[in-house]
Design a protein around this nucleic acid. Structure first.
Length: 1024
RNA sequence: GGGCGCUUAGCUCAGUUGGCUAGAGCACCAGCUCGACACGCUGGGGGUCAUAGGUUCAAGUCCUAUAGCGCCCACCA
């Protein structure tokens, strides 16, 4: 078999491709979708030429296919190899991915690609989340907007069908986005939180918890969304200040002439009052405690109670009406005092039959009516306008009503403690560490977790209700260990939990079963993600240890616990904590060893990006404009320890391409139309528009933050291009580092240092440093200095061979180092290098891996780091920069003569590097040594190790030169003054470490010498 | 109200355990098409490190307070 040429084609001229022989071992791999890596050997070295600019799109297309075909991303358990596993935080299928996802997934891919190169058996598990309420709300909104229908018009089955269609569309889009970003996920394993494998895990977990008494049903106060008619979680609400009022009323106190005054923002809740509370120590109300008040509108008698927790005597009147069914604090108070709880609302927000004459009215209408009626009774003491911070539903944007309803809960006390212990004893470590506090604080509250949602989209609660004698259950489910039952709180109804769905007639026609209509909180299935995606629990029942015969269990045992979870801080409580809980509960082990929390991306105004605000960017826009490598580099560059990062966004004018910065008023879909300041044509700003606009073209978005990555990819490309143009005659061969010339030892020293640093930075999740280190080494050291120095050597037959080997070897290392961050650019160059220099590497060349994806991660001997050599090159760089500065100042186009007065050792060094100095600084004659004299008209540069004179015969501007020297002199004197003052301080000499004091002494001596030298030069200049 | 961060050049950010004259990219100014790269090269200008105290021989770095910004949690009869 042979690989067709086009699969490794590089869009280079055909003729330069001379693949000699290509062979693929016969594949007997049984697993579908997996292909054994292919091997081929490569042709003879020759110089080849790349296009002038890196074309990211071509690279993306080519290498995505190439990687897929080779199955590099697929992982299977291999007992001899250490696994490295990450499960993706599954994106919601509510919509497309945004920048936060781009960041999150880039960082995961960097880790996965790096560890893969290190030889780990890496698995990155991809997938998406059904995102219960969020997805249903999106689809319901569309239904309302486009068809004017509610979910009830459609019915449960039809709505769920519609949501599945939505899911299919967005899941595909999300997976495409991930793929185009270069994420090296094991795509064959892609999961969805509602697919059968995950559903099985949910069912088994629920069953276990119910059986263990950890799941219960009870009446609790929840956040009720009256539009979606469901409970929503605390984290699904937001607070918004609205105009409201503070109403003051009086209730008569029974058997007295007294009244008790109180204030409320929600007068209609008087219908549900079951007490009035005062502070037990409040002298104003001592005599009323224990008496009875009357609610006139419904003629209910309610007690006046003392409650120190509910009442703050310094606020308002000091007396509080208590509505346990419609206020969280009152609810707690109601529990403490065993008050009745009267629910006055229907699910749609109208008053129910408990509201007597007000039944059927909307709650806001009732509010007015109640107030009027109280006024008629003379019990209304006025209202005061006030801004009220009101809870709203995230999904429907309507005000939340606290509402008493039946819900399912998980008891958290023991589960939470186990999860806390795992972090306290270090089985799970947070990076940065401080986030452990968020986790521990939240779990420490041990609040029971409400897991039921009155929705249609999600995992149905596996509970069936029946009214019957228990004997019926025992008979019907005899011998079955997959069905358990318990009586509800009122002891009237059986709650039956089953691993498999029960038919309605399971108990016979006399006792029909009815399944709970609710679904589970979406986080219930997300909480199982690390083990459910790996196949837990397999076909076995929870009590049976599955054993070696179960392949799913074997697989889970291999990859679980996973290595690291990469996520953002806002779901530490919602998700991270719950994964630890269920992991410990189901598997008995933590789900991951590390949790890395990355920063958030903000817009230009410091606000988080969100779809609602419309300040987000589609990663595909960035990929289209700058390339996937640039997107990834930008993301890695941004990922610092502490700091959220601002990302100013621009709209790209669809007519003329001008970048128009996004302003505040463009957000929240407020501005439908923007006029381009350059071409004056209108367009619609890019963003979260729900539909197309046929008349107005929509702008793509851009951000200059990605230019750095695009430029870097191009720089790397061109460095490679230069090399490939100069590889004629390249012959691989071993190098003895200690025998190499100084410039080679320098770049190898720098390379060894950079490589070690990057490895360490990756280990510590210091992503931003990784980007910086690889960028600086590649650009400022390799390209700016080493490549420039190599130009002379490549022309010199004596030096050419070694220079080629070192250049190729260093570039090879750079490609490996950069690959986790910029895989497409790295692969493009890697493949080109494979054509021209298949055997390469330092110090001993080896045949190259067929892809940089599987090339070994580099590591170099610590002995290569040579600080003395680095110092010598740094001195040369100082000399070169000094000469360049003079040339630039005098605008010199021709070469200059340079005279350097220095010690013999330094002079030897400069002589050895003379070729580079003349090349890099444009020097004609270079003289150095202790006896070198300053030429009459020259510019001076004073350095601790030398004095350099640039001859300016006939060109010198004496005044300007003197002025410059004086400025320098002033700076040095000021610095000297500071340094001397420090040294003269006896406390400093005594208390500071000896080496610091010595450093200071050396500095003073240096400065004094330099000042003397500058003074001397100034004198000479003036005399001349 | 509680907690966690942040405030360094016009902009976006680095700055390890306190220790030589605080760095980068972009933007700005000047010059460069010289055979890798104008998505480039060379040189340059630009900062009272939010403010006020304190600790220390020494503070951008540690402590306290203040102001502003962001996020999380709780709460507002």
């Amino acid at each position: 078999a042979s690989i067709p040429l086009h699969s490794v084609n590089l869009s280079l001229p055909r003729t330069i491709f001379q693949l000699s022989s290509v062979s693929v071992p016969a594949s007997e791999d049984p697993e579908p979708g997996w292909q054994r890596p292919r091997f081929y050997s490569i042709a003879k070295p020759m110089s080849i030429e790349l296009p002038k600019q890196y074309d990211p799109h071509e690279a993306q297309q080519r290498w995505l296919t190439f990687w897929d075909e080779h199955g590099f991303f697929h992982s299977r358990p291999e007992p001899g190899r250490t696994p490295y596993c990450i499960v993706i935080p599954p994106p919601n299928v509510t919509g497309a991915l945004h920048m936060g996802h781009a960041l999150n997934n880039t960082l995961q891919d960097v880790l996965i690609r790096w560890r893969r190169m290190q030889g780990y058996n890496t698995l990155w598990m991809p997938g998406t989340d059904h995102a219960g309420i969020a997805t249903q709300a999106v689809v319901e909104r569309r239904l309302r907007v486009e068809e004017g229908k509610t979910r009830h018009d459609l019915g449960r089955e039809e709505l769920v069908k519609r949501i599945w269609q939505w899911k299919d569309q967005y899941e595909a889009r999300i997976l495409r986005q991930l793929r185009e970003m270069g994420c090296s996920c094991d795509w064959a394993r892609t999961r969805f939180t509602l697919d059968p494998v995950c559903a099985r895990a949910v069912r088994v977990t629920f069953f276990k918890m119910f059986r263990d008494g950890l799941i219960y049903r009870g009446k609790r106060l929840v956040n009720w969304d009256t539009q979606l008619q469901t409970a929503v979680a605390d984290d699904e609400i937001f607070h918004e200040t609205v105009k409201g009022a503070f109403y003051t009323f009086r209730y008569p106190v029974k058997g007295t002439n007294e009244f008790i005054r109180f204030a409320t923002t929600r007068p209609e809740t008087m219908l549900g009052d079951t007490a009035v509370a005062v502070h037990p120590d409040d002298p104003r109300y001592q005599h009323l405690i224990g008496k009875t008040a009357i609610i006139p509108l419904v003629n209910r008698e309610i007690p006046i109670i003392a409650d120190a927790q509910l009442v703050d005597p310094t606020l308002g009147t000091g007396a509080v009406k208590v509505t346990p069914a419609h206020d969280p604090n009152d609810y707690q108070c109601g529990l403490r005092h065993r008050l009745p709880m009267i629910n006055i609302l229907n699910p749609d927000g109208t008053i129910n039959e408990n509201g007597g004459p007000y039944a059927g009215l909307d709650r806001y209408v009732a509010r007015g009516r109640v107030t009027e009626d109280m006024e008629k009774l003379g019990l209304f003491d006025g209202r005061e306008d006030r801004d009220i911070d009101l809870a709203h539903s995230d999904r429907s944007k309507t005000p939340i009503e606290p509402y008493l309803s039946d819900q399912w809960f998980v008891k958290m006390a023991d589960l939470a403690q186990a999860a806390m212990d795992a972090v306290i004893d270090g089985r799970v470590k947070f990076f940065p560490e401080r986030y452990a506090k968020t986790y521990l604080d939240w779990l420490g509250e041990k609040r029971d977790w409400c897991i039921s949602r009155q929705l249609w989209w999600g995992h149905r609660i596996p509970i069936w209700y029946a009214y019957c004698p228990e004997a019926e259950l025992k008979r019907a489910f005899a011998g079955r260990d997959d069905v358990v039952w318990r009586l509800d709180e009122e002891n009237t109804r059986w709650l039956i939990c089953a691993l498999e769905d029960l038919p309605p007639d399971a108990l016979g026609p006399k006792y029909p079963l009815e399944q709970d209509p609710d679904v589970l909180d979406t986080w219930f299935s997300s909480a199982l993600w690390p083990h459910s995606t790996l196949g837990w629990p397999g076909p076995a029942l929870p009590d049976q240890e599955p054993g070696p015969a179960n392949p799913d269990w074997q697989q889970m045992r291999y990859y679980y616990p996973t290595s690291v979870l990469v996520t953002s801080r806002d779901i530490i409580t919602l998700w991270v904590a719950r994964m630890v809980i269920t992991g410990l509960y189901n598997v008995g082990e933590v789900p991951f060893h590390h949790v890395y929390i990355h920063p958030k991306i903000l817009d230009a105004f410091g606000e988080t990006m969100s779809k609602t605000k419309g300040n987000g960017i589609d990663p595909l826009d960035i990929i289209e404009r700058y390339g996937a490598d640039a997107l990834r580099f930008g993301m890695v560059h941004i990922a610092t320890e502490t700091q959220d990062s601002r990302m100013p966004v621009s709209n790209v004018c669809p007519h003329c391409g001008t970048l128009v910065p996004v302003k505040r008023e463009h957000m929240y879909m407020q501005t439908r139309k923007v006029t381009c300041p350059s071409c004056k044509k209108p367009f619609r700003p890019g963003g979260p528009w729900p539909d197309e606009d046929p008349d107005l073209p929509t702008a793509k978005q851009a951000s200059e933050r990605f230019e750095i990555g695009r430029n870097f990819a191009n720089k790397l490309w061109n460095a490679a291009r230069f090399l490939l143009m100069n590889l004629e005659g390249y012959a691989p061969g071993a190098l003895r580092v200690e025998e190499l010339p100084i410039e080679d030892r320098w770049i190898l020293s720098r390379l060894a240092t950079a490589t070690a640093a990057i490895t360490e930075q990756l280990e510590g999740y210091h992503f931003s440093d990784v980007a910086r280190t690889i960028y600086d080494f590649t650009w400022s050291e390799f390209c700016d200095w080493y490549v420039e120095m190599s130009k002379g050597r490549l022309r010199d037959p004596a030096g050419r061979a070694a220079a080629q080997r070192v250049l190729v070897g260093v570039l090879d290392a750079i490609l490996r180092l950069v690959h986790p961050v910029m895989p497409f650019a790295a692969e493009s160059i890697w493949q080109a290098l494979n054509e021209a220099a298949f055997e390469r590497g330092l110090p001993v060349p080896e045949p190259s891996a067929e892809s940089v994806v599987i090339a070994p991660w580099p590591a170099f001997p610590a002995a290569w780091t040579d600080l003395a050599v680095e110092q010598r090159i740094a001195r040369m760089q100082d000399l070169v920069r000094a000469v360049r500065e003079v040339r630039s100042r005098y605008d010199l186009k021709t070469s200059v003569d340079v005279f350097v007065r220095c010690g013999e050792t330094v002079a030897d060094d400069f002589r050895a590097l003379a070729a580079f100095i003349t090349l890099l600084a444009g020097v004609g004659r270079l003289e150095c040594g202790p006896n070198v004299q300053k030429p009459p008209q020259s510019a001076t540069h004073v350095h601790p190790d030398f004095e350099a004179y640039v001859s300016l015969r006939g060109l010198i501007d004496v005044d300007a030169e003197a002025k410059r020297l004086e400025k320098q002199l002033a700076e040095k004197r000021k610095h000297l003054q500071g340094a001397q003052a420090k040294l003269e301080n006896p406390n400093f000499r005594e208390k500071a470490p000896a080496e610091v004091v010595q450093q200071q002494r050396d500095l003073v001596a240096d400065l004094q010498n330099q000042i003397r030298a500058i003074e001397a030069n100034l004198r000479e200049l003036r005399q001349a």
